[in-house]
Amino acid sequence: MLHIINKSPFENSTLDSCLRIAKSGGAVLLIEDAVFAATKGSAAESKIKQAMAGMKVYALQPDLAARGVADRVIDGVTLVDYAGFVDLVAENPKLQSWL
């Protein structure tokens, strides 16, 4: 199952909710303002690292670049472009968008 998060981890608790509820073995894709969660040194780093123990974590590269943080992505987070985004959606039969 693929979980998509688009809200910043600092102003919205969707990342916490998702990581609490999502079953391990699934995938999490961070897009739009949620990509800040994938950056080193941020207060969300430990949550993402913890999540990576049981899930695959992806982040949308163009959104990281747009926000000037593409050079500080946490090791182990997989970057995808728009085509990769489509592949993830196609590969996963179920999808939850944490709006």
């Binding site: 590269q61 163009p62 959104d63 670049a65 747009a66 926000r67 000037g68 050079d71």
Partner: peptide, 11 residues
């Protein structure tokens, strides 16, 4: 933040 590059998201 320095180094913002929005070409990839078209804004």
């Amino acid at each position: 933040k320095k180094g913002q590059d929005t070409k990839g998201i078209g804004v």
